[in-house]
Design a protein around this nucleic acid. Structure first.
Lengths: 145, 145
DNA sequence: TTCCGTGCAAACAATTTGCAATAGA
DNA sequence: TCTATTGCAAATTGTTTGCACGGAA
């Protein structure tokens, strides 16, 4: 069924007048196969593991196209890195500053804060676009502050 | 009195065995004079306006040293940029995706969410380390979604 | 046939690093 | 004096771009 998910994404791409190529399929497969949170670089690595002939720039351009088509989104994690995942997968992210782990948490958790910012400041916050940094349980146990 | 703030920071640096130089003083002055939210690059520009002889790498190294000494912190703003400010200046940040404006909001606003994450997941979130992205009031009026 | 996507290599931006010279404490 | 800092230039890292060719529709 993950194969089906891949085809669905590619179908949308095709509908919009885009073309489906080996590289693009490989990028989508990589995103479907992993639970998400892969940095662009990781996508490149994973794609090239199966398709050494697919160039890195193709991966970057594919991610861009997929995002433009609304099929994929990226989330910023701390130090400039971004993680990519299929759209619709609207989980929120926590990123551990120590071990780098990115954890998914259910959506809705920040609704209250977002509402508050909207009402008090007119600011439309999109917390799903970033990973909230901090220290995960495992790391804080390993080395308490 | 901002001059005094500068001396206070430099004094701590000196206490720790560090040395106070023209470049370091200029970096601290830049941070004291502005309300904060300057990217590293902006600090370089501002420092060099008054001291063209201070090299960019010196500014980067100084920011690093100041952070190590706990005198300065940085906050990540969306696409990889980071803004620097004096420690103790613990305001939270919102960053508009459209116009790039960085707005300060009072601390404490995220306490509830942070508590929740701590209790339910054992995750010590530090929302002050990032700017929450979104669209500011002015921009959402200019071009509603 | 069309023209979208691709590989390639070079450009890029922002930051970092190695090293010898300089200048605080 | 002693060694933390600096300037400089070169190396890095991660991503983007221009261009001519190749392949999906």
């Amino acid at each position: 069924m993950s194969g089906q998910a891949v085809e669905e994404v590619l179908a949308v791409l095709r509908e919009r007048g885009g073309r489906v190529t080996v590289g693009r399929r490989a990028v989508v497969e990589a995103l479907v196969e992993t639970t998400g949170h892969m940095r662009a670089e990781d996508v490149v690595t994973r794609v090239q593991a199966g398709h050494p002939d697919v160039h890195a720039s193709t991966v970057y351009r594919t991610l861009e196209s997929l995002e433009e088509a609304g099929l994929v989104t990226h989330t910023h994690v701390g130090h400039g890195a971004a993680v990519w995942h299929l759209a619709g997968d609207d989980r929120l992210h926590l990123a551990c500053d120590r071990c780098g782990e990115v954890v998914h948490i259910p959506p809705g958790l920040f609704d209250e804060v977002e509402d508050h910012l909207r009402h008090s400041l007119g600011f439309e916050a999109t917390l799903r676009h970033i990973a909230v940094p901090g220290v995960c349980m495992a790391c804080s146990r390993a080395a308490p502050p």
